[in-house]
Amino acid sequence: MDFAPHLFLATLEGAITAAVISLTAVGLSLVFGIMRVVNVAHGEFFMLGAVVAWWVASTLGGHAALGFLAALIIAPLFVGLMAALADRLVLERLNYDLERTIVATIGLLYVIQQVALMTFGPDARPVEAPFDLRIAIPWFEFSDTGVNLIWPWGLATTGYKLAVIAAAAIIVTSIIVFLKRSRFGLMMRATQMDSEMASAFGIPVRRVYCVVFGLGAALAALGAVLIVPIQQAHYLMGGDPLLLSFIVVIIGGLGSLPGTILAAVLIGMSDGIISVFFSPTLAKILATLLVALVLIFRPHGLFGHHTS
């Protein structure tokens, strides 16, 4: 295959990474932006979503699409409720203190990881994609007779991968519309700006925090359910999404949703492309270097605001 179609294929892989990372990073960004909590356990909520998706799909049996659809609803709901419970039992009792919640979420990370290991075991678990559709991608070739349409060998993708990109775009757009247009979205934005004043105007800030923590975790779980037919579920799979989400949130600007989405596309695409042409490790090294540069030259990120 020539370089250009190869690059196109790598870009497509990058778009899938960007799609999933945008979901997990938006969840992390909401939690940090509104609650000022650095959720170190965010990657484990992602892992839990994938493992629960496998459990639901394998328990239900039957057609792959049925199990997948059930997982798509049950896994984020379960993980969101678990996170809301963790908020009530742990974070609220720590009064959402920044330092203490970091330590608490590190503890939560290990608890979730070890419970997943003890319950589901150390093996990678596959989940079948809801539909099996292979799409050959045409390419263009210039010749003396003009532009010819060709079908290079290996230039193909699956319909499911394209569906993941579309689903992530729809979910992220829905979150933005929810924040902008709904009453609860207004409560969330007011709480993000000044939680004390939000309270003074009747907004139940602690309830908002509980919902936001649950929503953040549910978004990570949703990303995991979408990716699990491509990557498989494993109890150690939370590390990469956590690292990439932190990178994205820092580059985009802590608490800035548009910045997070833009950075997710940038980091996801570069991660996908560099992983295909070189190695996934190099992709992570470069992304981490980019974070270092952003922290030096623009500490509040691309779209973040200076906060007192």
């Binding site: 009453r183 207004l186 409560m187 934005r189 007011a190 700006m193 000044d194 004390e196 004043m197 939000a198 003074a200 105007f201 009747g202 907004i203």
Partner: peptide, 25 residues
């Protein structure tokens, strides 16, 4: 109702949204 020192408006929200917060209760 409270009008705090330094006003403490939700500065990134529009005037209409600030009023909507006030109207919530």
């Amino acid at each position: 109702g409270l009008i705090p020192q330094g006003r403490r408006l939700f500065s990134e929200l529009t005037v209409a949204e600030n009023l909507r917060v006030g109207l919530m209760t």
